[in-house]
Design a protein around this nucleic acid. Sequence first.
DNA 1: CTGAAAGCGCTAACAA
DNA 2: TTGTTAGCGCTTTCAG
Lengths: 362, 362
Amino acid sequence: MSDQAKPRKARHAATLADVGREAGVSAMAASTVLNGARTSTRISDETRQRILAAADKLQYRPNATARGLAERRLNTIGLATTLSGNELNQYFLEVFNGVIEAAAAAGQNTTVFAMPDWQQVGSRLPAICDGRIDGLILLAPLINPDDAAQLPDHTPFVAIHANHAMPGVGHVASDEEAGAHAMVAHMLSLGHRRVLHLAGPNTSSGAQRRIDGFRRAHAEVGLTVNPGQILHSDYSAASGRRVLTEWLERHRGQPMPEAIFAANDAVALGCIDILAGLGLRVPQDVSVVGFDDTLLARTTRLATVRQPLRDMGHQAVALLMQAIEAKHRGQPARQATEVLLPTELVPGQTLSAPPAHTVLIP
Amino acid sequence: MSDQAKPRKARHAATLADVGREAGVSAMAASTVLNGARTSTRISDETRQRILAAADKLQYRPNATARGLAERRLNTIGLATTLSGNELNQYFLEVFNGVIEAAAAAGQNTTVFAMPDWQQVGSRLPAICDGRIDGLILLAPLINPDDAAQLPDHTPFVAIHANHAMPGVGHVASDEEAGAHAMVAHMLSLGHRRVLHLAGPNTSSGAQRRIDGFRRAHAEVGLTVNPGQILHSDYSAASGRRVLTEWLERHRGQPMPEAIFAANDAVALGCIDILAGLGLRVPQDVSVVGFDDTLLARTTRLATVRQPLRDMGHQAVALLMQAIEAKHRGQPARQATEVLLPTELVPGQTLSAPPAHTVLIP
DNA sequence: CTGAAAGCGCTAACAA
DNA sequence: TTGTTAGCGCTTTCAG
């Protein structure tokens, strides 16, 4: 025994050929024994044992890249998203949880591609789909129809919360309009009459769907929504703080809205922060609700609308795997499938009936 | 023109051989023109143009897997972590932000491997290091020395916040003891005397370092920490709620601690939630501070200790890239490097001087 | 039951 | 300046 306990080479892992040589058989015999024996032929028990012993001795590990090349399949899926404000957000984290969980269950790895904005998606997507992934999930893509039509057709795609339908691309979404409607209807039924909506950015179709739900709930009880009642944020807590602060300054001395319906959880928490700074209690003086039910909401017990983000990740992976399997079996290429999941109200601690007294804006 | 606008094959992307054929040259000529011309030889301008035209016509895309096999390099790094309580946490999100950012800047993709616990790391790591990644970052590994010694030696590793030193593995950490010490010293200087520490789990060496800082700050001003002053959570908001609730129930009617120093931001927010439920105001009645400065803290303006998590991601990638480059150039294998980053106090809105009156536990 | 041969798409030596 | 020849490590026909 030398001072090196293990007699394997340092630079590279052992290959099938090494194992075969060691066991005195061909590399392919080793292949059939060690990796999935695809051929109908079998190996005698005796040589099988020899091969296994050799593999063990040499610490053989199959090389995923080589296998990928030969099988035209890497067992890796991609997840493309944007870094909003230079960072990944809660929404991403929630969906990613679902994706990685479902992918792992399906024996797939997950590679994340994050780009500053969806403009660049058109240029980078083809480069991404260059054999390093078997399929790609687009997370909340803001993609124009032209670019959508240019998607490379040798890779299966699934989109989550896409702003536009894409030809041949599976789609997973939640019913945001219904969720917003249910929440706002609930607020109105609690007696709230002046509800401020701190919506998302204009570019977001999800923000628009939440506005639609907000309006519909008002319309149903005969209330009209005036334009000043809907403000726009960029989905971040900081912008929630900024937008609300500006609005309050413009309405100083006037009655405080009884409730705020925020575009997402972060914006809602930004609002709560500002209200606390003004000495207002939530929900005693003002109710605040969010949207998404991210970890942010679960941690702070925020009243919110639950989007099944994790489950959407699962569904997206399921759809993608179907498409990958189909393509691999040479079946009919892409077949768009639409999955629409329901939302759900989460009570939380930040929503109650409006205060008996009128609160004035300090 | 047929009804198919593009004359490329549907199933597979065009290969170098296809391009060569189209342009009437060899595949390798196409390779030198289209991908990095590694050889010293050059191609005449005329054939270069022919090749480029052919590539464009055929929509040629280099195949990353094939290139990876040939170059023994995939330009992909891995990030291994655990799903605590079945979900990825804020800590992960912060570090991941840094990793993906730095990796993208270095032209690397990032694949995430999440496993339920670090026990399984020993079994899965070798399988992960099978040629699908060039190097691996271990995020907060709880690994035993034996397993650490077993790490495959053909792949470079870097650990972040590791519980043990690992031979030949780069390490990035922040000075948690100093951070905890600075925060607690600050709290004591504000006049707090009864500070409860809701620490992390016993298994976490980071939790221990925070406890050390907590103790040192007390010792410096001549205060002794009694055992009941330190409670253990599992780093989640839910466990923060549970542990604090139980503790408060056991101490009903006694004086409320003036401040709570939580193991991380989530636990701190869990505490705030419970205190609010008891009608106690933060920080007027009780101060609460967190640790990490995750998005959770930034969103709620929690007083906390900032760990440069994103920057730690950057540093880890830098270390890893160094190791990968070195290995690729056949240089001296692993060379452990230790990077220790400073922490920083974040004031926030949840820490103030202790109340003038004594608050009793309801 | 086993081995030989060809090829996945690309790169890197060597000839021409 | 260009083409030829070998692989990278694995899988998959097809013969023995």
